[in-house]
């Protein structure tokens, strides 16, 4: 490949990267512009909240329970070395509340809800259903995007609290089976070290993750093209991009919350 050709390819790639960032930014701004304008589709938001919760409840419950149980089992030997097994409930609770529950919920939701939103809107785009809404004088962005992003932002924190509870239950089962600790003693010990900041940070994370999963899924689906191939690509990109953004947000939120902790 000649140097000129290489430069052309490089410039084209750079152009599309900037264009993608600009389009993503415009979509993000449009969400806030449309969300507070005109009639709110409450019925559709509730329908989407139900769909998101219903789709993920079992999977998040099972994953959360196993995470709590396995994390407790893996942490025991290290604490036992220092004769600190009695700290196990506190350690597990801190890990679950501060990091694990929000991350487990977000990653499972990114896979399950993000891909589903991407595929659904993508297939609506390629079968011209979104165009049909537009020519029927209905705002498809408001009906499809705003409702799904809000539903995801509302549902993920609820699922996160559910995941926290189930993970702690898994941890308790492991501790009860091994150390014979009572339910009350376990939870008193577990919540001793949990502060309001921990819960608030978790909630903030879950809200950010929910918004990210919703907006990335909607963006990918809403802008899908190239037929069925585009639908698959939209679903796949929705998962990959939202997972990547979730980890970036995790780092930022942890840094900010640590600043307040000190």
């Amino acid at each position: 490949m000649s140097a000129k050709k290489k430069e052309q390819v490089y410039n084209k790639g750079l152009d599309s990267a900037f264009l993608a960032v600009y389009n993503g930014y415009s979509f993000f701004i449009r969400f806030f512009r449309e969300a507070f304008k005109g009639r709110m589709e409450f019925q559709e938001i509730i329908k989407q909240c139900y769909a998101i919760g219903n789709k993920s409840l079992l999977l998040i419950g099972m994953t959360g329970f196993i995470t709590g149980m396995v994390f407790t089992k893996q942490s025991r030997p290290s604490l036992a070395e220092f004769g600190a097994v009695s700290w196990l409930p506190s350690l597990v609770a801190i890990a679950i509340v501060r990091a694990l529950a929000a991350l487990v919920t977000a990653l499972i939701s990114a896979g399950k809800i993000g891909s589903s939103i991407g595929a659904e809107l993508g297939s609506m785009r390629v079968t011209e259903q979104i165009d049909a809404m537009e020519v029927s004088a209905v705002n498809p962005f408001k009906f499809l995007v705003v409702t799904r992003v809000l539903a995801s932002t509302i549902s993920i924190p609820i699922l996160m609290f559910y995941c926290t509870a189930v993970s702690l239950l898994g941890a308790y089962m492991n501790v009860a089976l091994n150390e014979g600790t009572s339910f009350r003693a376990f939870f008193e010990n577990a919540f001793e070290q949990i502060t309001f900041l921990d819960i608030f940070t978790s909630l903030a994370k879950a809200v950010a993750y929910g918004f990210t999963i919703g907006i990335v899924g909607c963006y990918q689906g809403y802008n899908a093209n190239k037929g069925t191939e585009g639908v698959g690509k939209a679903a796949n990109s929705a998962v990959v991009i939202s997972m990547f953004l979730i980890f970036i947000e995790e780092v930022i939120i942890v840094q900010v919350s640590n600043y307040f902790r000190i």
């Binding site: 609506m124 079968t127 011209e128 259903q129 165009d131 049909a132 809404m133």
Partner: peptide, 8 residues
């Protein structure tokens, strides 16, 4: 629309 574009 060509493919009717009904909301499925």
């Amino acid at each position: 629309f060509q493919n009717s574009a009904l909301y499925d």
